[in-house]
Design a protein around this nucleic acid. Structure first.
Length: 275
DNA sequence: CTTGCCCCCTGCACGC
DNA sequence: TGCGTGCAGGGGGCAA
């Protein structure tokens, strides 16, 4: 569900509501999401000021006073909403954070693949040590063509699987992987190490362009992604190949979009203009 | 080290 | 209407 643009959209919408606030009460409505929830009565969370709220890869991080951090991952079906503490909960609201201004931040996640955890930080402004190895942010200067060339070099795996690997490229999930490769004119099955420098350059540009455009439109709505106020992302109609199996290619007007399964995930491409 | 496979969980669309 | 099947935006653990 949420790839980088969706997480960025949700993070930006939440930020003004949570920065500077304290969580005065937390309620876990299920025992576990992807992992066991250890939030209720946790002194690392309650009554600490949220000093900053930001995104890293597909994680949202609320840094708390005293070198603590609240880490959230939306998994496949996670979303957040700001209500009043007195508003009724909805089905699948899994975690409730009541804030010190009477608002209530609710983590909603039907499939429970999400993550909500509190950790200590080695230093103010640092990232928690529990995060897996993560590539540079794809919209930062650190994610340059040289990085992408280096992670492709010598690797046999299909380029689509590689750009969905968070140690190689972060933020690109199943939708934007297909979209980026379409934009770059590259077949998803191509071995990463076989891409010539020029095609790596095109892919690098395509990833940034696709993610940037999707952020501008507030993310993609496929099934149940909604922003913090319940509105829907507007990027879906801008998708060129994802979920368009058997349709005519919008670019070349000759190919018929094909679907195949790679690493267990649906993959879409135009057999004419992706080589 | 690298890579693919399977699983975690719930809801929905589809075909019979 | 009711049921079975397959599929869904992520990622971690494990085995080859």
């Amino acid at each position: 569900m949420p790839e980088l643009p969706e997480v960025e959209t949700i993070m930006r919408a939440l930020k003004p509501f949570v920065e500077g606030r304290k969580v005065v009460r937390v309620e876990a409505r299920v025992e576990r999401l992807r992992r066991k929830l250890e939030l209720v009565g946790n002194p690392d969370l309650i009554d600490r000021r949220i000093v900053s709220f930001y995104r890293r890869a597909k994680y949202m991080l609320a840094e708390l006073s005293g070198c603590r951090v609240l880490l959230l991952h939306l998994g496949m079906t996670g979303s957040c909403r700001i209500d009043a503490c007195t508003d009724p909960l909805r089905p699948h609201d899994r975690v409730v954070f009541d804030l010190d201004d009477g608002r209530s931040w609710r983590f909603h996640d039907p499939r429970r693949f999400g993550q909500v955890e509190v950790h200590r930080l080695p230093a103010p402004g640092a990232l928690p040590a529990c995060l897996p190895p993560l590539a540079p942010e794809p919209l930062s200067d650190a994610f340059d063509v040289g990085w992408l060339r280096q992670v492709c070099r010598g690797r046999q795996r299909p380029i689509k699987n590689l750009i969905m690997d968070n140690a190689m490229v972060v933020g690109v999930g199943n939708i934007y992987a297909s979209e980026s490769l379409f934009r770059a004119g590259i077949r998803p099955q191509t071995a990463a190490g076989k891409l010539r420098a020029n095609r790596v350059r095109r892919l690098h540009a395509a990833i940034r362009e696709v993610l940037t455009a999707a952020i501008e439109f507030g993310g993609t709505t496929i099934i149940n992604f909604t922003g913090v106020d319940g509105s829907e992302g507007k990027f879906r109609r801008h998708l060129n190949v994802y979920d368009r199996e058997a349709e005519r290619c919008l670019r070349c007007r000759r190919g018929i979009i094909r679907r195949l399964v790679m690493a267990g995930r649906s993959t879409f491409f135009c057999p004419v203009c992706q080589r």
